[in-house]
Nucleic acid binder design. Structure first.
Length: 293
RNA sequence: GCGUCGGUGGUAGAGUGGUCAAUUACAACAGACUGUAAAUCUGUCGCCUUCGGGCUACGAAGGUUCGAAUCCUUCCCGACGCA
């Protein structure tokens, strides 16, 4: 089985840089697994790697979507699978790098998602209903799913109903046997260091023009912007909604914790001290990490 | 110095005699995750507990009352107004 390297970890642990270093050493190419970096125009706020930092290593799954439209895990899954095959065909090693646990699992665990595209009309109708009404509807359609769903989570309820209406019921979660050997490296930092890195990173975001980026996204298309609505912008996370330094730092820390609760469940991850992968560190450390692969 | 308003849990800020360990929000901690996933959602959040309850708490000290975060007195602190 072909090897696929996965570099994951909390935000601001230096995943992108490490991925590039490893790619250089072992002749790899990188697939980003980040739910926001897929969008064109979300650069600063999403912490997208710069052309310069890529150091000539090809990066897949960046800037592949228009922020006006929703990009979904399934799309990501398809594109990523395709990218892996492509890289291997070119005789290189795929390196998946990112912090979106859901996306990562979609590839490495081969989660099979029900083939039901979003039904905007239905969603609009359902959005107006309360959670209690929604769970009632779901119960009628699919009792099994209604029993294990988070009854207070409207987003999930709506999706479940959407699937049940299309397929009769929500299929049980299935996972396809992986056809690659995924080697998962998790980068971690002690809390105080993580906080420092996050603060540094957020400061840089503002310096680099986060506010301008947001302005550009909001600006109507006829004026050369992306024409993103306020509501849509909300879905891109806190950097795009509450852009004050303090707020963004706090939200990023919270996000980092949420990431960790996701990663904790995955016992296949080999954890590595991220300070070994700091940009300033020698390549010996990278070698040490590669050895562990 | 006089007057007015105010001092509530990690923070903001409700409560103005009992139903108050104290609405709510934020932060904190833990967790979930079937096509929005940096999204969305849940639980805990004074201390102790054999989970029945017990104890300490709304600036401090006294007092009134069966009962006070809530009323009274004095003191301390803050804001504003007048000197």
């Amino acid at each position: 089985m072909k090897k696929v390297i996965v570099i994951l970890g909390q935000t601001a642990t230096g995943k992108s840089n490490l991925a590039v270093k490893i790619a250089k050493k072992i002749s790899g190419e990188i697939i980003s697994a980040d739910s926001r970096q897929v969008y064109k125009g979300l650069d600063i706020g999403s912490g997208k790697i710069s052309k310069k930092d890529m150091k000539g290593i090809p990066h897949y799954l960046l800037d592949v979507a228009n922020p006006k439209n929703k990009f979904t895990v399934t799309e990501f899954q398809q594109k990523a699978i395709y990218a892996i095959a492509e890289i291997i065909k070119n005789g290189k090693t795929p390196i998946i790098c990112g912090g979106t646990g859901f996306y990562l699992d979609a590839i490495t665990k081969g989660v099979v998602f029900p083939e039901v595209p979003p039904n905007i009309k239905l969603r609009k109708i359902l959005e107006k209903k309360s959670e209690i009404e929604l769970i009632k509807i779901l119960k009628k359609l699919d009792l099994r799913r209604a029993k294990n769903i988070d009854v207070k989570n409207k987003v999930r309820l709506i999706r479940a109903i959407e699937i049940a209406k299309a397929l009769g019921k929500v299929p049980e979660v299935t996972e396809m046997k992986p056809i690659y050997k995924f080697i998962k490296i998790g980068l971690y930092l002690p809390e105080n260091l993580l906080k420092k890195n996050i603060e540094k990173r957020v400061k840089k975001m503002f310096k680099d023009g986060l506010l301008n980026e947001i302005k550009k996204l909001k600006k109507p298309a006829r004026l050369g912007g992306a024409g993103i609505s306020k509501k849509r912008l909300q879905e891109f996370g806190f950097e795009y909604n509450e852009p004050t330094y303090e707020k963004v730092v706090i939200e990023t820390l919270k996000y980092a914790k949420r990431q960790m609760t996701w990663f904790k469940r995955d016992k296949e991850i080999k954890w590595v001290d991220a300070s070994l992968a700091e940009p300033r560190q020698t390549s010996k450390n990278t070698d040490a990490i590669i050895k562990k692969l």
